[in-house]
């Protein structure tokens, strides 16, 4: 009985883990990401190719992600739509 309870509790925790995980992953899928293609140009791409050099791009971020689509194809860093989540400079987005 004790073992049965522990397994049941474990399964509840497993279901919660999958639930939370799909929630965060779904949020990521719904978001729109703009990639830095040159020093001061961010473009909306679904399949980027190229490389963001975090050293050269300082202080700019390699990617800027929006929870909802701002509706523009590209923008410069200074004229970026508000509410974006900037990646840390540590990140690369493609090799």
């Amino acid at each position: 009985m004790k073992n049965f309870k522990q397994i049941a509790l474990g399964l509840v925790v497993g279901a919660m883990a999958i639930g939370f995980s799909s929630f965060t992953t779904a949020k990521k899928f719904a978001s729109v990401t703009y990639y830095q293609l040159s020093q001061d140009n961010y473009t909306k791409l679904t399949s980027p190719s190229g490389n963001c050099d975090p050293l050269q791009s300082k202080p700019h971020a390699c990617t800027i992600t929006y929870a909802t689509d701002p509706g523009v194809a590209s923008f410069t860093y200074s004229a970026r739509p508000s509410g974006g989540s900037e990646s840390a400079t540590k990140e690369i987005w493609e090799q």
Binding site: M16, I18, S21
Partner: peptide, 18 residues
């Protein structure tokens, strides 16, 4: 055990879905 289970299933699912 439960905390460790949560962590591994959470990250495994995220890795497989994406």
């Amino acid at each position: 055990r439960l905390v460790c289970m949560f962590l591994f299933l959470y990250t495994a699912y995220a890795k497989l879905v994406d």
